[in-house]
């Protein structure tokens, strides 16, 4: 499986990941290599195998519906890039 620079750009956009133009080819090469490695999976028949999402066949535990969190806005906003009037600020969102 080989990916083109164009493929890399599409995937990178989906992941909102900036990649320098001069590096695109090298990513395409590395990613193609990874996909070749991964392609070995097709050598085994898995038709009747149940996918395994977690190692232990555990069940989701449920939490009681009780408020346990206090307001920590100040602490959280202290590590935020840009805040004002209690809000996180981002470039204008157009709907």
């Amino acid at each position: 499986m080989s990916l083109t620079a164009d493929d890399v750009n599409k995937i990178a956009y989906l992941a909102r990941l900036g990649i320098d133009t001069q590096d695109t080819e090298s990513y395409a090469k590395d990613l193609s290599g990874m996909l070749d490695l991964v392609a070995q999976m097709s050598t085994v028949d898995t038709d009747n195998v149940v996918p395994m999402a977690h190692p232990l066949g555990q069940v989701q535990r449920l939490r009681p519906d009780q408020v346990s969190e206090e307001n920590q806005r100040e602490a959280f906003h202290a590590i935020a890039p840009q805040v004002e009037a209690g809000l996180f600020l981002v470039p204008k969102v157009i709907e």
Binding site: E69, N71, R73
Partner: peptide
Amino acid sequence: TKTKIFSGASTAYGAEPNTQACAV
């Protein structure tokens, strides 16, 4: 519910912005 689906923060309506948004 009293709390969020995946955290213990309150769901009460009308609080000051981001005062009911916990780390989760």
